[in-house]
Amino acid sequence: EVPFKVVAQFPYKSDYEDDLNFEKDQEIIVTSVEDAEWYFGEYQDSNGDVIEGIFPKSFVAVQG
């Protein structure tokens, strides 16, 4: 069931425009499960802007 919160276990950096880049310990709200390997989610950056994109499930852990 979406949405749910995950926390980055590792930093994720990608050159693909659709990917969500983040640092370790970033909290991310997952709004869609793309497939067995990928989530789609969002978070607010330090400027208060909402950043969204896809990212690999293996880089995050589900909270709770």
Rank of each mutant, 00 (worst) to 15 (best):
D19V: 12
S14G: 08
V7A: 03
D35Q: 07
P3A: 04
K24H: 04
G41P: 01
F40T: 06
S32K: 14
V6Q: 02
L20P: 01
G53A: 01
T31F: 04
V6M: 01
E27S: 06
K13I: 11
D25Q: 05
V30K: 01
V33M: 08
E34D: 08
D18Y: 14
V33D: 07
K57G: 06
A8V: 03
G53Q: 00
Y12C: 06
E23C: 10
S58V: 08
T31W: 09
D35E: 06
V6A: 05
I51G: 01
D19K: 12
D18N: 14
Y39F: 09
G53K: 00
S46R: 10
Q26F: 03
Y43T: 04
I51C: 13
V30Q: 01
E52Q: 15
F55R: 00
T31P: 01
G64K: 11
F40R: 15
V6N: 00
F22K: 01
V7K: 10
S32C: 15
F10V: 08
D18G: 15
Q26R: 03
G48L: 04
S58K: 12
E37L: 10
V62L: 13
Y43W: 05
E37P: 06
Y39A: 00
E1M: 11
A36N: 13
N47A: 08
G53E: 00
D35G: 12
N47H: 09
V62G: 08
G53N: 02
E37Y: 14
E52A: 14
K57N: 06
S32Y: 09
K5H: 08
D15N: 13
V2Q: 05
A8T: 03
F10P: 02
I29H: 04
Q44C: 13
Q44M: 14
D19T: 14
E37K: 08
D15L: 11
I29Y: 07
E23V: 07
V7Y: 08
G41E: 01
Y43I: 06
F10G: 06
V2N: 04
D25G: 15
V60W: 03
F22A: 00
I51P: 00
K57A: 10
T31G: 00
D18Q: 14
V7F: 07
E1R: 11
K24Y: 04
Y16E: 12
A36R: 09
N47G: 07
I51M: 10
K24C: 08
G48C: 06
V6G: 02
F59G: 05
N21I: 06
I54T: 14
Y12M: 03
P11M: 07
K24M: 08
T31R: 08
V6S: 01
V62F: 11
F55A: 00
P56C: 06
S14Y: 02
E17C: 15
N21V: 07
F40H: 11
W38V: 05
D45F: 05
V30A: 01
Q44V: 14
D25K: 05
T31Q: 06
D18I: 11
A61P: 04
G64P: 12
F55Y: 00
E34C: 15
S32P: 03
A61L: 11
F59I: 13
Y16F: 12
E23F: 06
K24E: 06
F59K: 13
S46M: 11
N21L: 05
E17V: 13
S58Q: 09
P3C: 11
F4H: 02
I28R: 01
V2D: 04
V50D: 04
N47R: 09
E52K: 15
P56D: 05
Q63A: 13
D25V: 03
E23A: 09
K5C: 13
W38T: 11
A36P: 13
F40G: 04
F22R: 01
E52P: 02
I28V: 04
L20R: 01
F22N: 02
Q44N: 08
F55I: 01
V2C: 12
E52N: 11
S14P: 03
S58G: 08
D35P: 05
V30S: 00
Y12T: 02
E34H: 15
I51A: 08
I51T: 07
L20W: 03
I54V: 12
V60M: 00
E52H: 13
Q26T: 06
E27T: 10
E27M: 11
S46W: 09
E37R: 07
E37Q: 09
F4N: 04
S46G: 10
A36H: 11
V2P: 13
N21P: 07
K57S: 11
D35H: 07
E1N: 11
V6W: 00
Y16M: 12
P56K: 03
V2R: 05
E27P: 05
E27W: 08
E37N: 12
A36E: 13
D45V: 07
